[in-house]
Design a binder for these strands. Structure first.
Lengths: 141, 141
DNA sequence: GTTTTTGCAAACGCTTTGCACGTAG
DNA sequence: CTACGTGCAAAGCGTTTGCAAAAAC
């Protein structure tokens, strides 16, 4: 799913199947989200779009991100300094958060979770989120 | 470190060594935090204390939790529905968050992280946070 | 006595929401 | 034509902060 246009077609198909309407705003927000890999905040997306898109509102970005989450097309992957960060990559992967610059970086490192031992809790586990914290390469001087 | 009074003595020692003053509020907040294992929010602690402690303020609870974090005596372990949750247990462990009731539960399940592969990123990794999401035993009916 | 901490209330900042208008289907 | 989405501004809400009084050391 690397081709952006393919992803947008997929988005339209899924959105329609969920009864969502395909608006120019939604397409633009989804395109922006999947085009970049810095896990933007709602405001990041808003800032990137307001130049090309007269009158787009921050509220619409928030509402669209929530819709995308509900449709399984996006995820809130972290909260850095009180600001939610989103990802259009929905395949399982981990993240590293730099406590200096706040960058959120994808980590494709394998993790072996002893899920056998988790069974004793009798929980229905749906998701496992792994976040590493530290200082990124650029911030180490 | 199971004995509460022992933990409080340890807290006083560390706090003093960091130049912090030992106030009745701080002792009460720390005691409340380490006495319970439900990962309370600042408001949970405030609610539990305001009965026994005339005039304690929510701001003091927030400030104390921040001080405890800085002293390495507590941690913000999760944010559930926009509310930060704290833990006085600072040894490494994971958490399960029930998306129905919002409970945060300690998980002492081993995880083998392939830290070797992390090295290629040239990050200085200080912490690894693992959170499982799903539905807890009580909420499954 | 000096410095830190507290309580109160106000301020903050991200996010959500009510409403009238616009637009997709 | 009807239901859903949008823009705007206002409201929400957890958390932080300024300040004078109080307490720790």
């Amino acid at each position: 799913m690397k081709n952006i246009e393919t992803m947008i077609e997929n988005f339209k198909k899924i959105a329609r199947s969920k009864g969502m309407k395909i608006t120019p705003q939604r397409v633009a927000i989804y395109r922006e989200l999947v085009s970049r890999h810095d896990h933007p905040s709602a405001e990041d997306i808003y800032d990137a779009l307001k130049g090309k898109f007269a009158g787009i509102s921050l509220a619409t970005v928030y509402r669209t991100l929530t819709s995308l989450e509900n449709a399984g097309l996006a995820m809130k992957v972290a909260t850095v300094n009180g600001v939610a960060r989103f990802d259009g990559k929905i395949t399982p992967h981990s993240h590293f958060i730099c406590k200096v610059c706040g960058r959120v970086i994808d980590i494709d490192c394998e993790v072996n979770v002893e899920t056998e031992k988790l069974k004793k809790y009798n929980f229905s586990v749906e998701k496992c989120e792994i976040i590493y914290y530290g200082v990124c390469d650029k911030c180490q001087n």
